[in-house]
Design a protein around this nucleic acid. Structure first.
Lengths: 242, 242
DNA sequence: CGATCAATTGAGCCGTCTCAATTTGGGTGG
DNA sequence: CCACCCAAATTGAGACGGCTCAATTGATCG
């Protein structure tokens, strides 16, 4: 299920990775980044639908997404699920499992994906010589806290159309940072998953997409999205009166 | 407004603090904890209603609450507010401001409060000699991520009565860990603040409190809460069918 | 002791959910 | 290659939960 791949001398490393502008190396000095090559010793290939980790698994590493996309979700005693994030290349996951070194969420690939394994023991070892690495992890964790707080804001303070518009803008923005078009992209998740993430039903999501399309803000066919009027989408996302 | 108080030789320190079972020292060895005394050099006294920090302030420290209680809230461009947490003694705040070393949220005292200042530069310095401290911060940040994810779950997946019941249980649990009664406590925040936090209106919160009281689950008078039937409250919080 | 703010309670409305029927698309095996 | 099947998405009708607006009561604090 999980195919672990050693990083061979000729494969891409942090120092040569295109994602270094987004991922762990962000903002680090060139020769500090080359030290990261010691850190990432393997990758894991995840076919669509498979789990990187489940709740209860021992946390031995955090993971940087190299390609594909992954959802993280909580599951309570009664089986109720809440998706807490859709992660894209360059983003780090697994940082919610560092309290007792046990994962509390599930991470599942939305499409065939590959992640870089950042082992915690290696991390601690290397951080002794490279203090900037600790600060880097601290930044990434802080970012994750902020991401989650923004989702709280979305769920707690926005109406449904604002949530969905903000969701599209957020995706557009992150994909654009990866070098893709901010105007055209493919949703890797179902209506049901979007609804779960945004605290809405799948029907509401579908209706809103249809409405946005009817109003000429987007064009949507199945999972292919075209943003036709970015400004209108921003207006939908922001408060009406602003 | 902010009264900074140097920690004098005779005042309480981490090594003698009652909160060491909850706060930064949690799980650390006795003589590692005594090293923390070097870390906390001052405290800040916050009268009710005053801010510990605002969005945009430079993040020079994180803070451990010594007494009182503090709310943290986001505020978007249009002035829309979302409360992201109500923090109690022994809990750490400010960890969302470590991305660009600038706070993104506001922290406001719900009552007269006092916090211990954990300066980041001191932290980094000490962590060189005391690697366990880095892991400690990592755990605390992971805990904050989890806290936020649980709020997401509450907002995204629970109905209003479940949210409010879960809120009361959570408070009860945390107060109990501080040595207070899990059955009787005083809410430090208004109905409006509870509503904002839980994604409800203040009227809905008030009505639900009244209903819980009518059903004999709690007794509530203004901000004084008595939990009469803890199990019933758990049932209200959990899924009905479970 | 009045002024002010917080909390309660009610009535009516609106948005989102639920339940259900239909359409569309993708994948699979004959 | 086509027909079939199943999952995903769309769309509609009706119900209900939580919101809005409004009035009243109850605390708190000069």
């Amino acid at each position: 299920m999980q195919k672990r791949i050693p990083v061979s001398p000729d494969s891409t490393r942090c120092s040569t990775c295109m994602l270094s502008e987004i991922c762990l190396p962000l903002g680090m000095a060139r020769n500090d980044i080359s030290r990261l090559d010691e850190l990432i010793k393997e990758r894991i290939r995840l076919p669509k639908g498979t789990a990187l980790f489940h709740r209860g698994d021992k946390t031995e590493a955090v993971y940087g997404i190299r390609s594909g996309s992954i959802k993280t979700q909580l599951e309570d005693a009664s089986g109720q699920v809440q998706i807490t994030g859709f992660l894209l290349p360059g983003e780090i996951l697994g940082m919610d499992g560092l309290v007792d070194n046990t994962h509390v969420s599930h991470a599942i690939a939305l499409e065939d994906s590959e992640v870089c394994v950042i082992r915690l023991d290696e991390m601690d070892r290397l951080a002794m010589q490279l203090p900037v690495l600790q600060q880097q992890l601290r930044r990434l964790m802080s970012k994750e806290i902020n991401r989650s707080h923004l989702l709280v804001m979305s769920l707690g303070a926005l109406r449904s159309e604002q949530r969905l518009a903000a969701f599209l803008l957020n995706l557009s923005h992150r994909l654009s940072a990866l070098g893709y078009s901010p105007y055209e992209f493919v949703l890797r998740m179902s209506r049901e998953e979007i609804g779960n993430y945004l605290g809405l039903t799948l029907e509401t999501v579908s209706r809103l997409f249809s409405r946005f399309a009817r109003e000429g803000v987007i064009k949507i066919h199945q999972r292919e999205v075209h943003i036709l009027d970015m400004q209108a989408l921003r207006t939908l996302a922001g408060s009406d009166c602003a």
